[in-house]
Design a binder for these strands. Structure first.
Lengths: 222, 222
DNA sequence: ACGTCCGTGTCAGGACCATGTCAGCTTCCT
DNA sequence: AGGAAGCTGACATGGTCCTGACACGGACGT
């Protein structure tokens, strides 16, 4: 899953980033509302964790403005358990809220709960060439055949699907698949590309090697 | 990628220059704000690394003045982790900041992140005559035909695309293609120009030889 | 608590290919 | 004609990439 964390306290942000990365999620970090908007403009997220107090505005106002054209679920991080904060959060369109300080396991539980609630309703499938990619189900279908992808393969294909035809370096892919501080060899990417290739073989989607630069997904040919 | 490093400590500057050159980036160095302005007037950059304390002024003031007509992303290099420095940086229009002393790999990660954030959204295909050059995909298309370029050819064409119609000496091209300390003959450039020519033959773009001076890309003719 | 299974990341060995050099050739200028 | 500059086919080389095998650890069921 791909999260966006909007939180200006770097210490707390790092802690959350680390913890969520342990669960295998890709988490981007914005320290302000303007930064959050940049992230949102460039990528789709499954969940947004939004602080209330931010250097350039109030998270609730931001949410109210964005709700019209933003369907991603949002969990608010309220500084204190002030009633005003909590009441406002849900009214503004947040899916849940959690008060600081909070236990990480509780945060994870809230995330799962919100994702379950949202994910059950709308499931969007993406066309990849003639194949049909369902990120939520973790499947790829083509010509009546359906393959199931595992966690890492799924995330890898998600990244490729978001940048079709574009060369993605192994470093870029690592940034998406692993946590910043994760100590992983680039070889891991080679291995996962290999596994993904074997799995999607003959499904109208292929991943080409561009020697020295990275990989590129092609959706055209046979 | 083309970076501008604004840093007055020569020792640190050299270290950064060396490291970034290893990644294949072209990095120019300015030791003061006035020098930085000269560089900015002559060339376009993909990213600027800007120190806070400079002999002729404060990097933040410089950034605040320039932000209106400067859309290049900026990473601030703050001397210490002083809160005043850090808070100011983002408000002044920096895209990110990093505190000295920092690890080179972290600097690289920040650079990647900022570039991804900025450039990730709009896929910029460049028109080269009647051909369409897609640096991210590493392809050149013309009249329904598409050729794939490899690493060195791609970088070479990138350099030419950035200076269309301009004569580029073999030395200039070598500086862009190879690391500073790389021990490469000028003949390598001749070889790569030849390979690139063969690949883009008939695509409305050609590279002319200017005897004794270098090469020049022309986009006009057949 | 224990055992099993599955997903994950590393490693080593090998195949493959982009790369840079060279030598001989062509082209251009004087 | 002669020399200098540039072009190109061929080649050795080193790096990049692929893959089977394996160790590890968490998830899960019993």
């Amino acid at each position: 899953m791909r999260y966006l964390l909007v939180e200006d306290n770097r210490e707390l942000a790092d802690a959350i980033l680390g913890r969520l990365a342990l669960d295998g999620h890709a988490v981007d970090h914005a320290a302000s509302l303007s930064e959050a908007e940049e992230w949102l403009a460039t990528a789709g997220y499954d969940l947004i964790l939004l602080d209330v107090m931010l250097p350039d505005g109030d998270g609730r106002d931001f949410l109210a403005r964005s709700r019209a054209h933003l369907e991603t679920p949002v969990i608010m991080l309220t500084a204190r358990s002030q009633v005003s904060d909590r009441v406002g959060a849900l009214d503004m369109g947040a899916d849940d809220y959690i008060t600081k300080p909070f236990d990480f396991s509780e945060l994870e539980a809230r995330c799962r709960a919100v994702l379950r609630r949202r994910g059950g309703a709308a499931r969007n499938q993406v066309a990849l060439g003639q194949a049909l990619f369902d990120p939520l189900a973790g499947t790829l279908s083509h010509a009546g055949r359906t393959v199931e992808l595992r966690n890492r393969e799924l995330r890898l294909l998600e990244v490729f699907a978001r940048h079709p035809g574009q060369i993605l370096s192994k470093t870029q892919l690592m940034d998406r698949l692993f946590a910043q501080d994760a100590d992983v060899t680039e070889n891991a990417i080679e291995v996962y590309v290999g596994r993904l290739r074997r799995r999607i073989d003959g499904m109208g989607v292929r991943i080409e090697t561009v020697r020295g630069l990275g990989y590129r997904m092609e959706t055209g040919g046979p």
